[in-house]
Design a protein around this nucleic acid. Structure first.
Lengths: 264, 264
DNA sequence: CGCAGTATTGAAATTTCTCAAGCCGAGTGG
DNA sequence: CCACTCGGCTTGAGAAATTTCAATACTGCG
């Protein structure tokens, strides 16, 4: 783990657990005992500097990362040394729960800006999931949404126009930022250079630049100084061909029939 | 479900459960009670005709599909009506366990050839996972490998040359076929037309054709009549930049292992 | 045998990338 | 306060890759 460790008081640790509970509740309905179990998770908070790797391809971490602040990215390292960015993560995301069951990491995780993460020991999570199946199901669901986002990324880089790809990434990030209550005046943080966007979207830096200009000139959206500003959502959405179903933001539609649900 | 139903005897049902157990065992270590529980799963076997959809984007299935025979594919439907293929599935795969927790399907599932599937009711799986956390973990892991494959697909369509993309798809399918013991004389089934390959790899039909010829002329691999024939694995692997780690074939060590390890 | 679907080929049209130069804004030091 | 520098953004133009179009060959099947 190439990060700066930082000791934290119990108060912060409690607020980390509370955020974790809030995130989990987006994916399941819990019994009081489930909530207690989640809140008893002990984590370590760490600051990560921009550009720093948190875990690398090939490693076998024994902790899972929980994002508190800033933006993280997952990426593959190609034979020529370049990166392929796979996903971007914000407050409330758990970018590597999969490491709990898939011991060897098949990709790396890095910070894109000055970020803050909590580190959750695998053994604690494993205990939690064994004792509280309802909680396990919620976290399982979380990893399934993750997979749905990857599927969209395949379609995005494979089938959409350059402008559509960029617009789709903007839509997705904006929607997810909104869910995490991180938007303000139709804007959210997106600390990526055009070159990095290119490495996420399978486009050259120049192509990213030109697609960006189309969106800007049409007053649809703008990306400046690491910030995404949405001017006209319907057009952005249309250009992207964006359908937010795959983000599965509405858990009630999905899990209402779960047996352990209080509401039945 | 647009499939042809078919009544089956208990013997077949038992053998479906046995295959399910074998697949699950690739992802976990079970107690006797776990095994009993898996073997008690009741399923329905169905035949699916080539090209038929099994479940469609937007639907809310109450069963999960288990592939017994033939090949299935998941795909997104684009605004212009075209398809983006996301993944291909063979005997032993569970292409839509995620529907257990993500009720609204964000993609469709279809058969590519004459296939046979078993249909596992969600409520049975839910019961099984609630009662046997160890089994739940194994199936969870299975969905995580699925996600890892999607991540590779992003990199494949986004960052590799046309020839590399095709080679990588070949490597992946061949490795997975080998794991499922479906290879014979360095060949396996891959019932896709060049046009369909294009819709999986983000290339035009013509580009697929030309990439195919390069591989064929160099005696690396060949694809004819829905069958993939590998002539020289090391070259195929090199062209693809293929590293099988992401398939997580070895559950215990999670160490990358080649299908041709006998020859190095 | 002939059909239908698939594969192959060539060449023009288009997109996309690469290269290379200039620009802009923030931070730095004289 | 301004010149300087650095990284990232913008621009233009030629080179290269890719798609499209269109015609031709092949293959399995009825």
């Amino acid at each position: 783990m190439v990060v700066m460790a930082k000791q934290v008081d119990n108060l912060t640790q409690r607020s980390v657990a509370e955020l974790l509970l809030a995130v989990a509740e987006r994916h399941g309905t819990f019994l009081p005992a489930d909530e207690t179990a989640i809140l008893s998770i002990r984590s370590q908070v760490r600051a990560v500097t921009a550009e720093a790797d948190i875990v690398r391809q090939g490693e076998r971490p024994d902790v899972a990362v929980f994002v508190l602040k800033g933006m993280l990215a997952r990426y593959h390292t190609l034979a020529n040394g370049e990166r392929q960015y796979l996903s971007f993560h914000i407050r409330g995301d758990l970018p590597d729960v999969q490491s709990l069951f898939l011991n060897v990491l098949d990709h790396s995780l890095c910070a894109l800006d000055q970020a803050q993460i909590a580190v959750l020991p695998h053994h604690q999570l494993r205990d939690l999931f064994l004792r509280r199946p309802g909680v396990a199901f919620a976290f399982w669901r979380l990893t399934l949404v993750d997979a749905a986002i990857f599927r969209q990324a395949i379609t995005n880089v494979s089938a959409r126009s350059h402008e559509g790809r960029l617009a789709h990434l903007f839509c997705e990030q904006y929607c997810r930022a909104e869910e995490a209550q991180l938007t303000e005046d139709s804007a959210c943080s997106l600390p990526l250079s055009q070159g990095q966007l290119g490495h996420a979207l399978g486009m050259s830096l120049v192509s990213v630049n030109r697609a960006m200009q189309k969106l800007r000139r049409r007053r649809v959206a703008e990306h400046r100084a690491g910030r995404l500003q949405v001017f006209y959502w319907p057009a952005l959405r249309r250009i992207a061909g964006f359908d937010p179903t795959y983000l599965h933001l509405d858990k009630s539609a999905d899990i209402s029939r779960m047996p352990f649900s209080r509401r039945g």
